[in-house]
Amino acid sequence: MSLFSKPKYSTVTVKKRDIPQGLWKKCPVSGEIIYVKELEENQNVVPRSGYHFPISAPERIAKLVDPDTWEEFDRGLKSVDALGFVDSKPYSERLEKYEKATGLNDAVACGVGRIHGIEVSLAVMDFRFAGGSMGSVVGEKITRAIERAIERKIPCIVFSASGGARMQEGILSLMQMAKTSAALAHLAEAKLPFISVLTNPTTGGVTASFAVLGDVILAEPGALIGFAGPRVIKETTQQELPEGFQSAEFLLEHGLIDQIVSRLEMRDRLRDILTALHVKRQKQPAEAAR
């Protein structure tokens, strides 16, 4: 299912066989054909239309943090099939498949690095792994990333990309919402900034927990962001959805997020926000006394 319907003014029609697999990509907004190499060099953002293709966690981290400052944590955490869950395939088989396809152990990579010299605890979700779904490992790693920020007295930044809670871990997945949100209460108490960046898509249990609890909430252009998915809402309410419903732009207009920021400007914007809220803020009397 495509997340964005093709605009009606698109006139370029390209037959599938004209595009060699993996070399070229078609922009869903402008219809232009882009050389994949060029796209990758531009962080998967189409240069002219500004359309944001998904980006993997490792690629995002590489472009975001200062060179040679990234230290990854908790890579050894792996999901297990606690429920013995089988649908058309056993969950354990699915996990293996995702691992092979992505080279990741689960749907989030966490660590500490510097952004323009500012040390941050960073968690970046990767939609390619089980649709970025949150099970025990994602919940635990995000919680640890928050706790690590508290220990080191540094800000926490989470990039979300998720279809929601991971059904194959049942109720344990739901509990990760409570766990991550509770950790954020501690971060807030420590008066350390939490910046949540919503990327395409961020829905379900991730949206209804840490992703919307940012002191500052940013979103990438065009990202689909919501609690219930558009199809579910349409089926339940039997109503036509407003244009642009649940897009980053829609959320900005409704006052639900602070800013829409292009991936190409994200690194600089994070520096600017952290400089104001963390680096240059006035030390409160109690802090200054320490």
Partner: peptide, 12 residues
């Protein structure tokens, strides 16, 4: 905090 089931490799 303790809810969740996962493996953790020793090295990590």
């Amino acid at each position: 905090r303790r809810l969740g089931v996962f493996e953790e490799e020793q090295a990590a």
